[in-house]
Amino acid sequence: MNGVHDMGGMHGFGKVEPEANEPVFHAPWEGRVLAMNRAMGYLGLWNIDIGRFSRETLPPHVYLGSSYYKKWELGLTNLCVQFGLIGDDELAAGHALHPTKPVPRTLTAAAAPKILSRSSFERPASAPAKFKVGDCVCTRNINPPSHTRLPRYARGHSGVIECIRGCHVFPDAVVTGKGEDPQWLYTVVFEARELWGDAADPTVKISIEAWEPYLEAARVGSFDERSGAQPIPN
């Protein structure tokens, strides 16, 4: 979705302000929110992409006006309600009022160490990769109202395949209920001037990780010479 979470290239947010000797958590509740997110994610009802989408769909003024862990708390609460685990009446009461809904599994203290390692997102491929390292590609101009990991600033631009990262769970499919639908994942590198125009710094390159459905072969003639790679003949 073309939401405010997709911040790459926006102006007006000001300077980056690092905090000296920053604590891991600024208040105890932040740690509880982080841990609850991990523990609830472990239930197996939703994956990381659905969790991200839950935060992205917060109203723009809430997203921009909330601290990081506040957004996590809002996103988690929304997911719990959406999946029927808790009710608004329970949130208002601050206690459980309804029976527990059966869930695939829960995170016990004994199993908690497992949560410190993420599981792999790589899956067996059903077809060979369409692109190879060095290929010139074009990112598609897509604007799905649901979750996507193709940032707006990188849509409709020419880049070069720098690396093939394997076949990975495709977030766009997961969030629209189509399952994991694994797709080849590539590192695609762009010249800053391709993304931001001729005034951009010629010494800067930017890369994204792009799943194959985000890409198409660059057309001969549409190729920008700056990228230094060869277009694929049609």
Partner: peptide, 12 residues
């Protein structure tokens, strides 16, 4: 939130 999730057995 933690109280509700704990009472319902979703988190430990």
């Amino acid at each position: 939130l933690e109280t509700i999730l704990t009472e319902k057995g979703y988190v430990d």
